[in-house]
């Protein structure tokens, strides 16, 4: 087993290397003194980070993307968890049709969904708004949440819930005390999915964004004609550092705090 385990560990390492290769390129290039990235780099510089902070447009787009992603992930995960519960825990007519409907948003090519929704809104004479953009993101992140939560729920044994119910807990208590903790990893995965997909979406956002609203991807898209400024690479680096360094730091702090508590006792 230990040989097999070594192989698994090595395989995992390779996969992570593959996943990070483009990220590493972007991070390295953000320290490049030159505007056009090519290796070997001719000099190191922090100028793109300075430029990033001073670039209102990118900073604003970044804030928009964060807010949009956070709202999307909360709404979409809530809807998705409820729907997944219904799909796994109950029997009802038309179930297969509904499960297709729930996954449908990723079956339609995004550009079609984008145009179709605009046509519908034009027919209603409803103007584009941030709320619409948000709901658009919710719609096509929903299938991710439903799929991942459903897969987890199928694996959770019904006995636990029934035991809780038979011990006198009501349905909500059972959900809160038993089901939710058991499916928590899937819920978190769903939130993570919906946030990142929303954060990274281009096609739908291009069509649905109201005037004056730009997300990071749409900013990048508009820069493509002339050249993507390396500030975008710097933004990638900042994002990565925050998402990796902060959890690491948090974990380290937590360990220290708990260590102190044990020693203090």
């Amino acid at each position: 087993m230990s040989l097999a385990w070594t192989a698994i560990r090595f395989g995992t390492l390779l996969v992570y290397l593959f996943m990070f290769a483009p990220v590493a390129v972007v991070m390295l290039l953000s320290f490049n003194a030159n505007q056009f990235g090519s290796f070997p780099m001719e000099g190191l510089s922090l100028r793109w980070f300075v430029a990033l902070i001073e670039n209102d447009a990118i900073v604003r787009a970044f804030q928009t993307s964060l807010v949009l992603g956070a709202l999307t992930s909360v709404i979409s995960t809530t809807m998705g968890v409820l729907a997944a519960l219904a799909m796994v825990r109950y029997d009802f007519p038309g179930k297969r049709l509904i499960s297709t409907a729930l996954i449908a948003p990723i079956l339609v090519p995004e550009v079609v969904l984008a145009v179709a929704l605009l046509l519908f809104l034009r027919a209603l004479d409803v103007p584009r708004s941030f709320f619409l953009l948000l709901m658009g993101h919710v719609i096509f992140t929903l299938p991710f949440v439903v799929l991942v939560v459903q897969a987890r729920l199928v694996g959770i044994r019904r006995d636990y819930e029934e035991a809780a119910l038979s011990l006198g807990a009501n349905a909500f208590q059972t959900f809160r005390e038993i089901t939710l903790p058991l499916m928590l990893p899937a819920v978190l995965a769903g939130m993570l999915f919906s946030f990142t997909i929303s954060f990274d979406d281009i096609t739908g956002t291009l069509f649905w964004k109201p005037g004056g609203v730009e997300t990071v991807p749409t900013q990048i898209f508009a820069m493509l004609r002339n050249s993507i400024s390396p500030e975008i690479n710097a933004l990638g680096t900042v994002m990565v550092v925050f998402t990796v360094a902060l959890p690491l730091l948090g974990a380290a702090l937590a360990r220290r705090v708990s260590a102190r508590m044990t020693t203090g006792r």
């Binding site: 409803v126 103007p127 584009r128 708004s129 709320f131 619409l132 709901m135 109201p210």
Partner: peptide
């Protein structure tokens, strides 16, 4: 317009 859109939807 955002509120309007929200109300409408």
């Amino acid at each position: 317009l955002g509120l309007l859109g929200a109300a409408g939807l």
